[in-house]
Amino acid sequence: MSFIDRLNVRLARFLMYLTLAIVLVVVYGVFTRYFIGRADARVIFVSVWLYGSLFALGGGFTLLEKGHVSVDIVYKKLPSRIKRALDIINLLLIIFCGAVIIYVSLPLAYESFLKREVDSSLGIVFAPPIWWFKWVPVIAVILIVLQALSLLNKILKNKTIRKGRDEK
């Protein structure tokens, strides 16, 4: 396991607890509104942030675990040499997509930070900062790209080893 693999696994082990946090926040919101008659406007924001961070930042780990679904109908029938070539191409394409998204979103996140962007849905009653949330997709895509690089590195290194073991 490379450093990047470990990083994504560690992060996932932390992120997964956000689901429990969402449960608590949502149930707290229902409870206070229905039983106490006090509607807490923060609930909807906090649960959305938790959910958004959970799925976005989990992208790198999901890639490591081959969790991003692909259609293997043709792929399955190909000889392993071509499979390997496709694996490399696909990782390169993922890295390309990721790089473009990072390139586009970095300035957006940075600007949001400079403005100290806040959410306006509730006017000035509750105007939580959301500039930090704009950094989440940026970091998420960086994690995906790093993970793709790590996987790519593994495939390329495996070249010689594979020849010996491949025909099992």
Partner: peptide, 15 residues
């Protein structure tokens, strides 16, 4: 359970 949740949510939402 939490780890499965993370993976499935992430997969679906990225798509």
């Amino acid at each position: 359970s939490l780890l499965v949740t993370l993976k499935v949510t992430s997969m679906a939402c990225w798509i």
